[in-house]
């Protein structure tokens, strides 16, 4: 029992109380017996697991997806060889690999990739910036939620490609069209993600906040939002998926004007040239971006958050 802690605890008490406490402390049992038993029990009850090496974990996580890709390639090649479609309609992995090489060499691949990726990321970030405060308001203000909840869910279900014709009329063949469609696709997901996250906050944690004396603001910033983080992350992930899909839909339909050359336009070009290898190249690139963002951005963040909270056991 450190002296400074004791004076701090007893600072608000009368002299009599302090005497009484000092007396009680003097009759304290020898500290170390209790300490030993307590420490021993703590050591026995603390989960102690051997942590597998990082390389072993990485290896265990890498080979199954690689194997799956190999299986898909084999099936693809088998379908091509079976001759259900002429080779110019259904190119094999080799033809597509050559098309990827050509597109990389003439630079069109990189242009399409950077254009789409920067639009997708910017649009997604804008959706997060708009959706997050709206989501907090919808989650926390009852009447807003009752009134707007169904509309937001409806918007989330509505394929945002449905907005493309209207957006072209309003914004022309410009970036405005692309971003409008992306926002209409992603914002409802971000809002619903945060609402779902807030709904799943255990009532006990709110009680803790109240007991600890959190005001309205502190309740949101210290308790509700951190507790809602896993749900919010799920919403962000879905928001990104909707951003990317909406972007591709908008790019495939809206070609020309000042709209630039993205992966969607790349794909449409392949269609107009009747070059199926090019179409497949575009599809593979769109897929690759989706997988890469999941692997590089969302999966690690999600894993870290869940592991910190003990919601995920693996290393």
């Amino acid at each position: 029992m450190p002296t400074d802690a004791r004076t701090w605890f007893t600072s608000g008490l009368s002299t009599e109380d302090k005497d009484r406490i000092a007396d009680a402390v003097a009759h304290e049992p020898p500290a170390d017996t209790g300490t030993d038993v307590t420490a021993g029990l703590d050591a026995l009850q603390t989960p102690a697991g051997a942590i597998p090496g990082a390389m072993a974990v990485a290896w265990r996580r890498v080979w199954p997806p690689l194997l799956a890709v190999a299986v898909v390639l084999v099936i693809w090649q088998a379908v091509v060889w079976s001759g259900v479609q002429p080779i110019w309609n259904l190119p094999g992995p080799r033809e597509v690999a050559q098309a990827v090489g050509r597109a990389a060499q003439d630079g069109s691949l990189w242009e399409a990739l950077t254009t789409s990726l920067s639009r997708g990321v910017l649009g997604f970030l804008a959706a997060v910036a708009i959706g997050t405060p709206l989501g907090i308001v919808v989650a926390r203000v009852k009447w807003v939620r009752v009134a707007f909840g169904p509309i937001i869910t409806g918007l989330q279900v509505l394929p945002s490609v449905a907005w493309v014709p209207a957006a072209i009329i309003w914004f022309g063949l410009s970036n405005g069209t692309v971003y409008f469609v992306v926002l209409m696709g992603a914002v409802p997901s971000v809002i619903n993600g945060i609402v779902a996250g807030v709904d799943q906050v255990p009532p006990l944690l709110r009680s803790v906040g109240r007991v600890l004396g959190a005001g309205r603001l502190a309740m949101v910033t210290e308790i509700v939002l951190p507790a809602a983080l896993p749900g919010y992350l799920a919403g962000l992930k879905q928001g990104w998926a909707f951003s990317w899909r909406s972007l591709m839909a908008a790019e495939i339909i809206a070609v020309g004007g000042s709209i630039g050359f993205g992966l969607g336009q790349f794909l449409d070009q392949g269609r107009q040239l009747a070059d199926m290898a090019l179409v497949f190249t575009a599809i593979l690139l769109i897929l690759a971006v989706g997988i890469a963002i999941e692997l590089v951005v969302f999966a690690p963040v999600e894993r870290a958050v869940l592991r910190r909270r003990g919601l995920r056991q693996d290393a």
Binding site: L205, S207, L212, L229, G310
Partner: peptide, 27 residues
């Protein structure tokens, strides 16, 4: 009053120390 529950009700995203510090912060 301060209140302690049957479940520890620690905030799962904070360390033990931060949980205690939060009570001090809100005070």
């Amino acid at each position: 009053a301060a209140l302690m529950f049957q479940e520890s009700a620690l905030l799962p995203w904070l360390t033990a120390s931060r949980n205690v510090e939060l009570a001090l912060k809100l005070r």
